[in-house]
Design a protein around this nucleic acid. Sequence first.
DNA 1: TCACATCTTTGCGCCAGCGCAAAGAACTTG
DNA 2: CAAGTTCTTTGCGCTGGCGCAAAGATGTGA
Lengths: 232, 232
Amino acid sequence: MDASTIIEDSFHRSDFLSGITEQQAADILNRGNCVRLKSSQILFRQGGPAHKTFLVLNGRLKLIKLHEEGKETILRYIGHGEITAIISVFKEKEYPATAETIGATEAVGWDKQTMVQLMLEYPPLAVNMLRCTINRLDELQNRYLEICTEQVEQRISRALLRIMKQSGRREEDGIHIDFPLSRQELADYTGTTVYTVSRILSAWEKKGWIKSKREQIIVCDPHSLVLFSEHP
Amino acid sequence: MDASTIIEDSFHRSDFLSGITEQQAADILNRGNCVRLKSSQILFRQGGPAHKTFLVLNGRLKLIKLHEEGKETILRYIGHGEITAIISVFKEKEYPATAETIGATEAVGWDKQTMVQLMLEYPPLAVNMLRCTINRLDELQNRYLEICTEQVEQRISRALLRIMKQSGRREEDGIHIDFPLSRQELADYTGTTVYTVSRILSAWEKKGWIKSKREQIIVCDPHSLVLFSEHP
DNA sequence: TCACATCTTTGCGCCAGCGCAAAGAACTTG
DNA sequence: CAAGTTCTTTGCGCTGGCGCAAAGATGTGA
């Protein structure tokens, strides 16, 4: 994928660049630093000084928050066109989470000064940033409500549907989650354990709602899953 | 409390107004609508059209998110100087939560057009809004991690400490939570039940960590509580 | 001051989900 | 293809915390 394609693609997909012309987007992207990473590498680390804000060009990140003793939770998956680590715009902060690549991933990073300068030159950027942050907050508030009020099986159904909407690819046999997603990750995403996720997915597979292999899930019957997620 | 005192106080306390002169703050506040509410009244309702953004002048709000069947969670308490419902700046949205007053409360509300106009006139406002939103997101990410990885007793200790920092008043016998806080609310805040909260607070009272009456909590031994919250 | 409403406490039984252990399945590497 | 690694499944026992029920405590309004 050459540079112009990247720019064009990011331009069309990114909420962060809405209200920005294609030329302006090219300028904005060119003034950041491009990072190419292989799978399972760390883009930034929780606790490290928050130097840069990143926009994912292609590939995918998972945003992981670590607890003192070993445990962790997955805050969110970040696909192409999405921005992360906005916190770095503000002075002297630390990254509140770790970003790890899922598959080969390219991202553009801007340091504080550059981003502030860009926001001054292109006012829509600041507004877009605010909108993106509000959307994140809204999503997390919904998940917080879920984890407070719902049973595990219901939470997993909602999680799978959410991930499906964000990263589903429609094929004949159902909607494929288009990145490797293990039982452990689904557990970390929903606040439960591998064992419980495994048992529940097995049960769903028996009902024909999903099909699954190692680190791969196909939702065959989204409708039943939606019904269940609303009336367990 | 007369108007100038309100302005002065808001000015000194509000993260939202940082980088704004006192005169400018007066202008900003005057261009909103002031709302005075008694205790336990609704400022805005989840699902209703998000017309206005609010700044609490004095008193306090609790931000409640309701689940389909009866259950609910408390997303956060909003004290004076704090802003809420920033989402209303963006078009055609609904309030994602309900705000209810705790005690008599005054707030200023700005509608979309006014707020957009103000942000154009006073650029720091937009930045402050972004910072406030990022702080909310950060706090909620921390609570999400807690609820995913910690047991109930630990979560309640962290919740109480958090509320204490935000709304504690130091007196001889300990740090008083300076608003009525029931067992039910603490349960809704931490994703558990009244029964469990009651049992745990009783146990802490026996240990001398807290004292409590109906809807009132005094933290006598914050240190022990901190130790426990970190190494249960 | 009495009736009523609301909040709190505690005993008790129960079960959703945790977590160990161990086996099996799938992918990787030399 | 053999050995090692990582992911998944399942049986089993256990327990943290849920939630009913009922009594007590505290506050409010007529």
